[in-house]
Design a protein around this nucleic acid. Structure first.
Length: 425
RNA sequence: GGAGGGUUAGCCUAAUUGGUAAGGCAGCGGACUUGAAAUCCGCCGGGCAUUGCGACCCUUGGGGGUUCGAGUCCCUCACCCUCCGCCA
């Protein structure tokens, strides 16, 4: 959510942001501005009338107490009240139009976010590791998974449907080992606090972090209730501090959280249909930070580095890109993606997304900070990133570390979490 | 699921048959002081305003209703507490 005063005073910057994001047609900026000024005009008149009514009403009270005749003032209040009702309706409808647009208004972009049209204009800023070269015919992960009895897509389809997976035996253990390793790395080496939060959240939380209204079709809604299945732990964890004013000394809040994530993948029919690449349900270890405004970009870079440590521990080749204005998420002002090398596709695919929202989510979720030494509460900054997403980490690990015989080498850092096992097969 | 109690500003607590939210703590600024404490004054939810100092407006969990007027009465929803029931 943007501040309406900011929008009024920086209209051309907002217009440029919408153009940079290719959002011009989706947001009625002029309608918003007119709703704001209509509201302001009505509120001014409303305030004056209310002041008159309050004065008259006070006279009524005085006269009643002293036993006098208040008829004249009662009549005055009655007549003013009619006009007040009209104006209240005007204000209400102006605010409704205002909020409708505001909820669909994306965040301003950070100056370091490159301007571009789509994913082709994202900027690569780093590469780590080398994509492996195989002198044999490599197997895709679903073949490796079925060969070792780690994965079963057919049975998952039986109990649920397509785009679900079932992990058996060492497969289930491997998934769990990776989750535990990631959590431990962040807790013990990076200073995060582990959180385990609900997987079902209400509409207000979904709106607080900006999934609603525009991603409604990507999420699962529970029938006959106000609950949604979380698409990421970002939602449940960030909203833990909703409606709070946090003392400056307690910032930054650094949380890491395991959760299952649920996505309808409504627009992705027919894509990545084989294997683990795209699932309706997958696991993820998420990193969430709430910080002082002045520290936020530094904290974002640290968060990215924290996620990278996991990639390195798993010995998975990756690159880091900065998303351009046409590709970056709705509420983010800047976003790094970590992309892992997928041998079977011979390209990099997203495995982590580290985004900063500045005040955008904080304003929606009303997360504020009380400055050291008192003073007016200000909005905190929020950010989050995958640290990292399972399923894709699982599939990358199978493919990258496969041998000619189909056996899979377990990276050394993971072995203690996997019963000391050095390989599968 | 049922019954009862509750929700007042960051925290805690008042408010007559319905009469227009009173205080305390914490915090900030100032005065006083060598400095601090104590004391005193102002501020201390949001909006709007400002050339100049506010006789300005809204806010008692959310929404609606009754009334000239609602923290107070009615309806509804959310959440918290207690008890009963059911349940992994």
């Amino acid at each position: 959510m943007l501040d309406i005063r900011f929008i009024e005073e920086n209209t051309s910057a907002v217009r440029k942001m919408l153009a940079d994001r290719h959002y011009e047609d989706k947001v009625d900026l002029d309608g918003l501005l007119s709703a704001i000024s209509e509201r302001r005009k009505a509120v001014t008149e409303l305030d004056e009338l209310r002041a008159r009514r309050n004065r008259a009403s006070e006279e009524v009270a005085k006269l009643k107490r002293s036993g006098g005749d208040a008829t004249k003032f009662i009549e005055e209040v009655r007549s003013i009240s009619g006009r007040i009702k009209e104006l209240e309706e005007t204000v209400r409808s102006a605010e409704e139009r205002m909020n409708e647009v505001l909820l669909w208004m994306p965040n301003m972009l950070h100056s370091s976010t490159p301007i571009g049209k789509d994913e082709n204009d994202n900027v690569e800023i780093k590469k780590w590791g080398k994509p492996p070269e195989f002198d044999f015919k490599l197997k895709p992960h679903w073949e490796l998974g079925e060969m070792h009895g780690l994965l079963d897509f057919e049975r998952a389809a039986k109990v649920s449907g397509s785009m679900f997976a079932c992990y058996f035996g060492l497969g289930a253990q491997l998934e769990r080992a990776m989750i535990n390793m990631m959590l431990d790395i962040h807790i013990t080496r990076h200073g995060y606090t582990e959180v385990f939060a609900p997987f079902l959240v209400n509409t207000d939380s979904m709106q607080g972090t900006g999934q609603l209204p525009h991603l409604r079709d990507d999420m699962y809604k529970i029938e006959d209730s106000d609950y949604f299945l979380i698409p990421t732990a970002e939602v449940s964890v960030t909203n833990l501090h909703k409606d709070e004013i946090i003392p400056e000394g307690e910032l930054p809040k650094c949380y890491c959280s395991y959760s299952a994530c649920f996505r309808r993948e409504a627009g992705a029919a027919g894509r990545d249909t084989r294997g683990l690449m795209r699932m309706h349900q997958f696991n993820k270890v998420e990193l969430v930070k709430i910080t002082r405004p002045e520290d936020s970009y530094e904290e974002l870079d640290k968060l990215l580095a924290d996620a990278e440590v996991v990639m390195q521990a798993l010995e998975l080749p990756y690159r880091v890109i900065v998303l351009c204005s046409g590709d970056i998420g709705f509420g983010a002002s800047k976003c790094y993606d970590i992309e892992v090398w997928i041998p079977s596709e011979e390209r990099y695919r997203e495995i982590s997304s580290c985004s900063i929202y500045e005040e955008y989510q904080a304003r929606r979720a009303r997360i504020r900070m009380r400055p050291e030494g008192g003073g007016k509460a200000v909005f905190a900054h929020t950010m989050n990133g995958s640290g990292i997403a399972l399923s894709r980490a699982f599939l990358a690990l199978l493919e990258v570390h496969q041998g000619e015989d189909g056996s899979i080498k377990i990276p050394q850092a993971l072995q203690p979490y996997f019963g000391g096992r050095e390989r599968i097969g």
